[in-house]
Amino acid sequence: MTIKNYQELNSLEMDTLREIGSIGTGNAATALSGMLGCPVHITMPEVRIMEFNEAIEWIGGPEPVTAGVLVHIGGQMNGIMLSVQPLEFINIILERMLSVSIKDYSQLAELERSALVEVGNIMISTFINAMSNLADMKVELTVPCLTVDMQGAILTVPMAEYGGQSDYLMTIGGNFSCDGHELPCRLILSPDIRSLNFLLRKLGVEDG
């Protein structure tokens, strides 16, 4: 079955996507664990299909400032992957990696920024690698890009990219925890609809 809209996904397809989320975030957690030097666990991976304004509420409102690392996915699949990093998460990374902490995003200098890009990049690329191995797809990633700004505007990047196809944003992602503390970092994969169909077909759920 080829879907034209995210809402047409049936429960088997949703389960498959959740599994991708689980494998992807699982691998990303392992990579993150290596960088931070502490065990990192994932909580339930989630697949969400949200109307634009609902998605903004889900991320925690439009105006709070966060850091976002964005990668474009090309090749056999098109999509955007975002790592959204609030200040608490940034401080965990910076303390572990560089033994510094910041009170405000304006204190992010070049070294700190490149650490954040690297963490985002490694999490995103391990996620994508796991997924592309699973589905036997050739996928290319662009150079990661960091921005620090209102999170609502960061989230509208994937919305605007696929806004011509849908009034909804689809996200596959998960949350992390370390030493019993929640690591407030969101990993969000937003594929376009054609790629989503291709991915599901590759995984053999077309007859679902």
Binding site: N53, I56, E63, M150, G152, A153, T156, V157, M159, A160
Partner: peptide, 23 residues
């Protein structure tokens, strides 16, 4: 005003929309 939204007023209330990125 949300995303992909419009609101109108003749009561003089302040209109606000948050976090315009490329929008």
């Amino acid at each position: 005003i949300g995303i992909a939204d419009m609101k109108m007023t003749n009561q003089g209330s302040e209109l606000i929309t948050y976090a315009l990125g490329s929008c």
